[in-house]
Design a protein around this nucleic acid. Sequence first.
DNA 1: GTAATGCTGTGATTTCTGTCACATTGTGAG
DNA 2: CTCACAATGTGACAGAAATCACAGCATTAC
Lengths: 205, 205
Amino acid sequence: MNWKQLFPQFEPELIEVIEKEAVQRSFNAGDIIMRTGQYIKSTALVLEGQIKIYRENEDGGEFLMYYLVPGQACAVSMICALQSHTSEIMAKAEEDTEVLMIPVQLMDDLMNKYKSWYQFVIQTYRGRFDELLSVVDNIAFRNMDERLEFYLKRYTDKTGKKIIGLSHQQIADDLNSSREVISRLLKKMEQRNMVKLHRNMIELI
Amino acid sequence: MNWKQLFPQFEPELIEVIEKEAVQRSFNAGDIIMRTGQYIKSTALVLEGQIKIYRENEDGGEFLMYYLVPGQACAVSMICALQSHTSEIMAKAEEDTEVLMIPVQLMDDLMNKYKSWYQFVIQTYRGRFDELLSVVDNIAFRNMDERLEFYLKRYTDKTGKKIIGLSHQQIADDLNSSREVISRLLKKMEQRNMVKLHRNMIELI
DNA sequence: GTAATGCTGTGATTTCTGTCACATTGTGAG
DNA sequence: CTCACAATGTGACAGAAATCACAGCATTAC
């Protein structure tokens, strides 16, 4: 696939270098790409698919932070790579996913040489930071009904689809809630004509 | 004061430039340093005092994200400055505070020329990102009692003091809770011999 | 078809936290 | 000292959400 379209801001020489040095890699839906405590040796640019960035608690709860979609990069891996720290989060391929892995050694070099890369990194930091902020906002200030609405909206915004192919249980996990609560709230939303419920699928109206 | 000791990692030329170009500024306890929606024209290095970074909700609730203490810098202002975006958070001087303001125009230059500045910026991003992550962890997975313990611990860790000079109301605000709840939980902690309560002051044991 | 399994719906109950109401206590101003 | 006020203590109640228990339906495997 032609990945350059996903990163139109990159200057030609930068694209060349990446093309030469980066490694393309595929993950199947469900693959764990990065886990808590793991050392990072490279940064990933998402080409295709969707990556879920989440935090795991002791009981195995998977609290969703945000999704990475094509054209985005993982801020955490950038930071960790540049400092050889371990990551504090988990990354999982939600669908079959293609990524470009940029080795750590290259990062410093790119930062120095290519303005567009530097810009991209800064922009990535900011984007993820903002997403984290809005996550904090939601759990700090909102009730579950509003959080659920936000969750569904964000999902369709990111993917562009009006159909959400998730079970109530999966949504509950992402919001660190319980299935029953989510089912009830969804039912209420259906009564208010905001969604249509099907098995393993929610249709946003 | 000799601010260089606070930033021992800075190379000598960098220190010179900062000394020449940066402006020192004082804030009184309670001053708002940055507010939501405001454009940022410079980054702040904290020299003395303490800055509270928080998020405000509609009802005026002040939800604490983290504190900045001497030797640290504001990651948000860096990102915003570099992108001329508005900030999404509030910053307030908790005590009388001294900061060094680095103008935006200088930032790009420093990033390119001084490795130690670049390292510092990356490290700042990572530090704040991690703090945000642990905030998310806490509100997502913990009950108020654990969050309170974490809050008190973090406070003493940052300041080095075993004494916390805050009213129950202020703590409740920071945790987006209510005074009564905090009072009760503190009482329980006192019974378990974890703290000693005084008026406007909590002593950690 | 039948059984097994997974997803969804729903009531009853419990726990945590927020809210209201009001009492008590410490502190500083006059 | 006395008054005013801010900080704290405490009981009663309300609401959101978690948990438990179980039923009904779809889908898949056989």
